[in-house]
Amino acid sequence: MSDATLTLDDLERDALTELVNIGVSRAAASLRKMVNKQVILSVPSVEIVTRKSAASLIGQRENEGLIAVHQQFEGPFSGRALLIFPESNGLSLVRAIVGDEMGEADLADMEEEALAETGNVILNGCLGSMANMLQHTLKMSLPGVRRGNSTILFDVLDNTSDQSFVLFLYINFSVQDRQIRGYIAMLMDLPSLEKLKKLIADFIDRVMA
């Protein structure tokens, strides 16, 4: 395993950031239609890190419980996508979607379903758009919701964590003036990461041709 596999040169990073931004913009447009409210998503950074590093990065930033919507994806590159929020931000997102007039008990009942649907829209929009730009398609599983700290969400205690990596995106949400922060993480093994890098290289060649 070479360090080169874990790193992106400037051109690769710019191309990947552009792909991600297009994907997130389309996801925001889909979410906007769903909630009928102004939605802005921005991605300030894109990194490839180990699972342990990703867990550590979130653990350092967040001092409360986390909630994640997760989906498996399969195609030319495969893995598991996570949309992660601090729990309080997740509740703020649900309130932005369903409205402030809903009572706490009803809100709690709807929270998991609303988060799963929101995560489905964002992850499908982001990954589907990226795959489309790379001239491929991805098959996405149904969304699930998981709670816990970053170590649990990234399964860093299992035996495979040293062989898999995370395409890690820090994102800012704005839903009708509510500021919500979160993370998109795509967990991939080394072969999938290498395939993604090859597809990015092909994309750069097409753009620059």
Rank of each mutant, 00 (worst) to 15 (best):
A4Y: 12
L8M: 14
D10L: 12
D10W: 11
L11C: 11
L11Q: 09
R13L: 15
A15M: 13
V24Q: 04
S25N: 14
S25P: 07
R26H: 14
R26D: 09
A28P: 11
K33N: 15
I40Y: 09
L41S: 06
S42C: 08
S42R: 14
V46Y: 01
I48K: 06
R51D: 02
R51F: 02
S53N: 12
A54P: 03
A55S: 15
L57V: 14
I58H: 09
I58N: 01
G59A: 01
R61S: 13
N63H: 14
I67P: 05
A68P: 07
A68F: 06
V69G: 06
F73R: 09
S78Q: 13
G79C: 12
L82I: 06
I84A: 02
P86G: 07
E87Q: 11
L115I: 04
C126H: 13
L127F: 10
S129T: 15
A131S: 09
M133I: 08
M133P: 06
L138G: 01
M140Q: 02
R146F: 05
R147Y: 04
R147G: 04
T151H: 08
I152W: 01
I152Y: 05
L153A: 03
D158N: 14
D162W: 04
Q163H: 07
Q163S: 07
F165A: 00
L169T: 07
I171D: 03
N172I: 12
F173W: 13
S174L: 09
D177P: 00
Q179A: 08
R181M: 11
I184W: 01
M188I: 07
D189S: 05
I200T: 13
A201S: 15
A201P: 11
M208Q: 00
A209V: 00
A209M: 01
